[in-house]
Structure formats: C-alpha cells, structure tokens
Amino acid sequence: MIKLQVCSDCQNVHYPERDICTSCWSENLLWSEVSAHGTITSVTDLHISAKPQWKDKLPLRLGLVALDAGVNILAFLDSDLCINDKIVLCMDNGIYSATLKSEN
C-alpha cells in the first residue's frame, strides 16, 4: 500500500498533491492507503539531465505507471522493466520506484 490523497466525499484518488478534489471540488482530502499495484505504460532511459547533481547517476530508467487506484505516476524503474509489466510501487521521501510484481 502507498499513501495518497483520497476524497472523503467521493473517494477520488489524487496525484500529484491537490488542494481540492478534482472530481467533486470537496476540500476533504485525506492521506489514505491505496493499492500500490499498477501497470507500466511507457519507459525511457534518461541520458541528459538539466541539473548537474544527476550527472554521475545517468542513465536513469524511468517509467510512467498507471496505478490501479486511477492516477499516473512517474517513477524510477528497475532496469529490466518494460511497457505493460505489472509492478508494485514504493515511496521513499516522496520519490516513487517500481519493481516487478511477483507472480503469486
């Protein structure tokens, strides 16, 4: 499970952080646990960064994840992950990474 903002009135899930529900405009957004499962919808290997602090870490494997809970999240990927792979997302200090979902 990961924590995202869920609307107490209509249960809409939000990412990135919102101030008001994008679905019903309620102000009652609560950080709640939602499923960390999702599917990779695109991938890229980033070779050039706009910021010097990334220089030694390039290339980076990145992907867009369609979370089952209904939001899209850009995440760091394990190097062998591809489009359509089912993944589990974990979050550390606001940064998301994806690993392959085990078969069982």
């Binding site: 890229t44 980033l46 706009a50 980076l60 489009i83 606001g94």
Partner: peptide, 28 residues
C-alpha cells in the same frame, strides 16, 4: 507545482522525459 513535485525529482530531464515517454508509447 506538478513539475516540481512529480517530474523534476526523477533526474530533472524536463520536457525531454515527458515527451520521450509519449514518443515511446506512440511507437510501441
């Protein structure tokens, strides 16, 4: 705010990253 929170922390590729993801999916 979204770019600062949900895109730049991932290697700061800027629009190159976003459009690479769109291009890759389009090609596939």
């Amino acid at each position: 705010t979204d770019m600062s929170q949900a895109a730049l922390p991932y290697g700061a590729g800027g629009p190159n990253t976003s459009f690479a993801l769109i291009t890759k999916a389009y090609m596939e």
